[in-house]
Write a protein that binds this DNA or RNA. Structure first.
Length: 381
DNA sequence: AACACGGGGCG
DNA sequence: CGCCCAGTGTT
């Protein structure tokens, strides 16, 4: 459900708006008028076809990446009729390389629906726009406000970020609750006299001042009343709940022991745990059954002839933001240092605690192996 | 509510 | 590498 059209007239008459909301809209529009020099071909125009085309292209796509596609598609299909009568393959060829190819198919579907059902004219209605394939709440609000000057507030990544920071809202933006909250707030902030201008302003502001990574708070015209800035929490807003578990990584740690020393290595790759230490690691693509016969064969393949397999641990897991680590620890006592471990570091067992390890390794050191080496008191918890 | 869908820019 | 981008559709 889209929030009801905004009621903020950017004047003191708005009965329910709190002072900060009026301040926000006024300062934002001042900034847009005074400092915003972000020029784009689709800005300031009211042709629904061009607005729609640009919005579809820009879904989850940076302006710098989508611009050339917009120009090429518009040149090839100057009107929605030209687009609607083009062949699927021809349009897809022009979309090639932009990604999210469902957008292209839905774009064509919508062009044909508009031709047959609406006589080639996009409906000047938020609800009707929303029914068209590839047009969701954001795009419907964008077309409604830019093309038809209807009072609907857009809520995209820029908007939710700017609002979460200025008003200090910690509700995750990617939940049903959060989406509803930000849509409501955005609707109240909207300047209903010029919805399109306001929507341009807040998105440009998010893209050029209140950026995701390094916002230019020093130059921010709203900084005086920005809640996040006052509280020093700009960097951790907006909050996102979804931490998609992209990949499980399977690690086998071989704890090689030789003359009271353990073999360790430092992680230096551009990867997790940079500059932390670990044991000799074997990473596999999928789950690997590190049973005794498998381990013995693996050791022999490495040219290790004399060894003593002391222990195979249970599976240890560690959750990272976008990874899940699953590690098994394999203790092997050697009677010599094999060639492939010549350049590794060998640390006295008593000194292990002085090195930095990932949590999953520390947990194994603390509780994971049968014969304690820290002494009967055990390691510090 | 969770997931799939792409490719590129940036630190 | 991790994060994010003028989000939407499906299950």
């Amino acid at each position: 459900m889209q929030e009801a059209p905004g009621t903020n007239k950017s004047s003191a008459r708005g009965s329910k708006t709190i002072p900060n909301e009026l301040y926000f809209t006024r300062k934002l529009l001042e900034w847009h008028h005074r400092d915003n020099r972000r020029e784009m071909p689709w800005k300031g125009i009211h042709d629904p076809y061009k607005i729609w085309l640009s919005e579809i292209i820009l879904q989850q796509t940076r302006v710098s990446q989508g611009l050339s596609y917009y120009l090429r598609l518009l040149a090839a299909y100057p009107s929605i009729e030209k687009l609607a009568t083009a062949s699927d393959a021809e349009v897809m060829k022009l979309w090639e390389g932009l990604g999210y190819y469902t957008r292209c198919r839905n774009m064509l579907r919508t062009a044909r629906i508009v031709m047959t059902n609406y006589k080639g004219q996009f409906p000047a209605s938020f609800e009707k726009l929303l029914e068209l394939p590839g047009i969701g709440p954001y795009t419907a609000a964008a077309i409604a406000s830019f093309a038809f000057r209807l009072p609907y507030a857009v809520v995209d990544g820029n908007v939710s970020r700017v609002l979460s920071r200025f008003f200090g809202i910690e509700t995750p933006i990617d939940t049903t609750n959060g989406k509803q909250l930000f849509a409501q707030l955005a609707g109240r902030l909207l300047d209903s006299r010029e919805p399109g201008v306001y929507n341009q302003a807040i998105m440009d502001f998010g893209a050029t001042v209140c950026m995701p990574q390094q916002p230019i708070c020093g130059l921010c015209p709203l900084g005086k009343k920005c809640t996040a800035r006052q509280n020093g929490v700009v960097h951790r807003l907006p909050v996102k709940e979804k931490a998609v578990m992209k990949k499980i990584r399977w690690l086998a740690y071989f704890v090689f022991e030789y003359q009271g020393k353990w073999c360790v290595q430092e992680r230096t790759d551009k990867d997790i745990w940079q500059n932390l230490f670990e044991f000799y690691a074997v990473e596999t693509e999928g789950a690997m059954e590190w049973t005794q016969p498998v381990i013995v064969e693996w050791l022999q393949q490495q040219g290790i002839r004399r060894f003593q397999l002391n222990h195979i641990s249970a599976l240890y897991t560690q959750l990272l933001t976008h990874r899940e680590i699953r590690a098994v620890f394999i203790r092997v006592k050697l009677s010599g240092i094999p060639h492939f471990l010549k350049n590794h570091r060998w640390i006295a067992v008593q000194k292990m605690k002085t090195l930095p390890f990932p949590r999953v390794i520390n947990r194994w050191l603390d509780e994971g192996f049968e014969q304690p080496i820290w002494g009967k008191a055990g390691p510090a918890k």
